[in-house]
Simulated assay, not measured.
Amino acid sequence: MQEYFVDLHIHIGRTKTGKPVKITASKLLTLPKVIEFSKKIKGLDMIGVIDCHSPEVLEEIQDYIRDYSAEEVSGGGIRFQNGILLILGSELEIYNENCDGPFHVLTYFPTIKSMKKFSYWLSERVTNVTLSTQRVYEKSEAIQLKVKELDGLFIPAHAFTPHKGLYGKGVKKSLTEVFQLNDIDGIELGLSSDTNLVKDIAELNTVSFLSNSDAHSLEKIGREYQLIKMKQASFRELQFALHQKQGRHIVKNFGLNPRLGKYYHTCCELCFTNVQDGKVCPNCSSRRITKGVFERLQELANPNDNTGLRPPYIHHIPLEFIPKLGPKTLMKLRDRFGNDMSIIHDTNYNELREVVNDEIAKMIVLSRTGGVSISAGGAGKYGKIE
């Protein structure tokens, strides 16, 4: 068994011909750059690219295989020459009539063949199959069933955020309002929640929690991730780990302190003042209020006697969040220590001081233990390190 750093939610901004895939993502977020940056700079071992249903993205992956620069592995997934393993994924937007709004799910498939079948099925139910995160005009149960027919994984994305989250905007109380619980392979927590905040939702007692980046730019890759114990990097091993089979399991989740997320507290959308009653801003009297993840989770909580063991959730601060750590200094750190995983987890204070000043070195070390002060975010505005 080995341990692998894994981020399963990375977008593609543009194809090799310059066509948009995730319109809101950076134009630099191309497949070749994702493959290189994820391994060389971020230090990841396995990634999930969740726009692989797009025909041109699929064609690019097949070009790598035809050029012998990548290969499909027997357990599912695509291994590239630099060693990184790509899991073929697709993010979908679903809307049921009994829901308060649309919500997103992540789906993953073991082979190019199964992804092609899903892409074809999807093309008859979306407006534009070439784009990311399209509204699927199909019932939620039918979508979940199709994914399972193709041996896929089905995971609600950033499930607790107020915009496009299953619990934040979709269901009123339980995911069983729209899905079969037994066919849920994991729950993506999102930036404004963590294991401790979500642990009291009883229906999720046996569901694995995932912490992924939802990267819309290269630097956001690995913003959140997990360490997973598997025999090797493959789709099948990932599936085993999510269901804790044969010794495979998630060892640790790594993510932002939820207070750094954009939707932690209920806030006014105009002036970002914290709103206690959730209705009217006490500062500007606006009624444009976004309910925070913290408050929503208090509504959903139903404490129970099941105290099943969860992997530890480690609060870490991505290097780009460190005050006064600019791009040039970050490049020096990467040149000296290799990649972000090494800098964040392994490099000690004295080694850091060889490259950066005392203040930055201390902040990186303190971020490993949660020893930093944070002003909470809300209504779309990130929290800040003080």
Rank of each mutant, 00 (worst) to 15 (best):
Q239I: 03
V372L: 10
Y264P: 11
R223L: 00
E124N: 13
L204N: 07
T15R: 01
S54F: 02
P258S: 03
R287F: 02
Q239A: 13
K220R: 15
N306T: 12
V105E: 02
F80L: 04
A157P: 08
V73L: 01
N283M: 02
D63P: 00
L204W: 08
E3F: 12
E295K: 13
P327C: 05
D100Q: 14
D151Y: 05
K22D: 13
F5Q: 12
P303G: 11
A215V: 11
S192V: 03
I61T: 03
K362P: 03
L166D: 10
F37R: 13
Y263R: 08
T17V: 05
T369R: 14
E224R: 11
A301D: 04
P102F: 03
I23C: 09
E224H: 11
E141M: 11
F209I: 03
D100L: 13
R296L: 10
I314H: 11
G75H: 01
G77M: 00
T369G: 12
Q276A: 15
L86P: 00
R296G: 12
I343H: 13
V275S: 06
Q144W: 02
K173F: 11
G255M: 02
H9K: 07
S286D: 05
L260T: 04
K113H: 12
D67P: 00
L92D: 00
L197D: 09
K19D: 14
G43Y: 03
R368S: 03
Q2H: 13
L58A: 01
H163A: 09
S90W: 05
K113W: 01
L88D: 00
S367M: 07
E354R: 11
P327T: 00
I78E: 02
K279V: 10
Y349S: 10
K39Y: 06
K279C: 07
K39L: 08
V356T: 11
E386H: 15
K116E: 03
C52K: 04
N304A: 11
S367K: 09
F118C: 02
G378K: 01
